[in-house]
Design a binder for these strands. Structure first.
Lengths: 342, 342
DNA sequence: CTGTTAGCGCTTTCAA
DNA sequence: TTGAAAGCGCTAACAG
């Protein structure tokens, strides 16, 4: 069977391919009669437009900015690889990106976002907000000015961003609770390590964990301990003095490696340790059984998906199917850790 | 900055874009001088060819057959979705596929494979061999006749297939061992359920599990029990009478749902149950805590990747980077099960 | 309302 | 060894 193109269906109907193109994309200015004829023929022959040719002819060029933090590097490198991989297929279509990594503070991010919106250089923005809540306003402003903004990894749920792709951190907290209970063989004493700025993400994780604990009658207590990375030694010392009576620790912030170091050198009976994300260092602690499990969220996939959503929206005028694209939570233990590192 | 195309670099050098194209693809018939000039200019301007335009002009059409079983349906549906999704981006490039699902017996598969190779309809074959070993010969024959064959999900390691994408089942068995030990709190008594035909895959899983058990001094015994799906009731009855003394069961074959039913109705103390893959049914057993964990291998990704490898090889003349593309093993428990179903 | 035409970036044939 | 020209399937401007 022959390939079916706009031209081939035009020939069958004694029309010009321009007319066929008009109805195929309902650009208007075609008589109802011909519209009907063309639509029927197209359905009959099962016509599908050729994206390559379409983009080639359109000459549309779109530029989108990706804004996300630099640290932890092992995590964002994976995300960036996912972005770049997905881009491979798309840049021939005239879709281009620029990656910006301002320091991970709210002020710096605000500056960059403002610049991105005002510079006229970009047609869209994909951002991991340092903290969703404070950035709501600026995102809102952008959206009002018809500037499309997408969030990923961290959401800004109260803003009207086009869509979010990333994990559900409440569920992540719950999962952490489940794993800790299972691995400690129904212990009753837990600690959660959070970071200094109690961001939206951190709150979600905590409440997931705590609600799981609450539903689980066997639990005695959950201690919340803060880790401040600008003051690492001191806060580690403080944590150390507070975990003597716990059987399991959930590191909700990005300090799993630091906590592992602490536990490794703490002698005698070690508490069960779980946390988030994978790196070479964490891999080693998994191998040594100092970390029992890490909860991951496929950063590579997340990056690809964020790019795809932006592409679909900006180049294909396709609204995302859902406002929230929640990525799966993956459990990593010694047995499957090697698949998650590098 | 302008877009850099063959034409634009031709203009800069006062050449025709045909000549530029010749050197860019070293088609020969160009003087060393011009070759040098063009190559330098291309590097300087950081030229990248436009795939869309290239495929459009080439008019190359490639057809590949995908051969895999129909059952278990929940699993192969996912794989097929992965294939179809990846195809979305590629069919505009002239890459087409046909999915064939012969009954999962060696004879039927052999027939289909022979037909695929001889029919002249296809330019390549991607197959999940019912059992790698017996299919080696036919794959070998195809490869000898320059007919490219790829394996996925199940390998045919002794054949000279272009590449394999799928899990490492030895590692899967080991992981099963680790999980069982952790979840049973260091039990010493385990059973493994395999299927009637002891395929290559099943052997791998068993030996992974057994070696883990061997290394783990605490284990008393591992019972191997067979499940025959052509004779379900009888073999379930037989299994039932043999698992009274075990604390943990690893279902290595596709009978996790059946085993769950057995355990659910067996009253009193239940053994810990783990197995492979996700379906709606298994999801329910996870929720009820009858299944403690399932080991998955991202069938969607597997399908996409198999397609990509075939595309790269056949359309881009790109040899796969590795002969074996091992997909990660994922651990599914109650807490993250919802991400793995549907 | 419909057709003609040029052109997107590339490949391929033919001619010089 | 090089260039000119046609054409892949589509879009968009212009003409009728």
């Amino acid at each position: 069977m022959m390939k079916v193109t706009a031209k081939s269906i035009a020939k069958e109907l004694n029309l010009s391919h321009a007319t066929v193109d008009r109805v195929l994309h309902n650009r208007g200015g075609v008589s109802p009669k011909t519209i009907k004829k063309v639509m029927e023929k197209a359905k009959e022959l099962n016509y599908t437009p050729n994206k390559s040719a379409s983009f080639l002819a359109k000459k549309k060029q779109v530029n989108v900015a990706f804004v996300f933090p630099k640290y932890p590097e092992y995590f964002w490198r994976e995300i960036e690889m996912g972005i770049k991989k997905a881009l491979d297929d798309l840049q021939d279509y005239g879709f281009h990106i620029e990656v910006l990594k301002p320091p991970h503070t709210i002020e710096k991010q605000l500056e960059v976002v403002q610049e991105v919106i005002q510079s006229e250089k970009f047609d869209g923005l994909v951002i991991c907000p340092t903290d969703g809540i404070p950035l709501t306003n600026i995102i809102e402003t952008g959206i009002k000015e018809e500037f499309p903004i997408f969030t990923f990894n961290n959401d800004s749920p109260t803003s009207k961003r086009i869509s979010y792709v990333g994990a559900n951190y409440y569920d992540a907290g719950r999962l952490a609770g489940e794993l800790l209970v299972k691995f400690t063989n129904n212990s009753k004493k837990f600690a959660v390590i959070t970071d200094e700025q109690d961001t939206f993400q951190m709150k979600q994780k905590r409440s997931g964990f705590e609600e799981y604990a609450l539903e689980n009658k066997s639990i005695d207590f959950v201690k919340i301990l803060k880790y401040d990375n600008r003051n690492a030694e001191e806060s580690l010392a403080n944590i150390k003095s507070n975990i003597n009576d716990v059987d399991g620790i959930y590191v909700a912030c990005g300090a799993l490696a630091e906590m592992s170091g602490l536990i490794e050198n703490s002698g005698d009976t070690r508490p069960i340790l779980i946390g988030h994300d994978m790196s070479k260092t964490i891999y080693q602690y998994l191998e040594k059984d100092i970390v029992s499990a890490a909860i991951c969220q496929d950063p590579f996939y997340q990056g690809s998906m964020a790019l795809r959503l932006a592409f679909d929206y900006l180049m294909l005028d396709k609204e995302p199917e859902r406002k929230e694209h929640i990525v799966k939570l993956e459990i990593v233990t010694t047995g499957n850790a090697k698949y998650y590192v590098q």
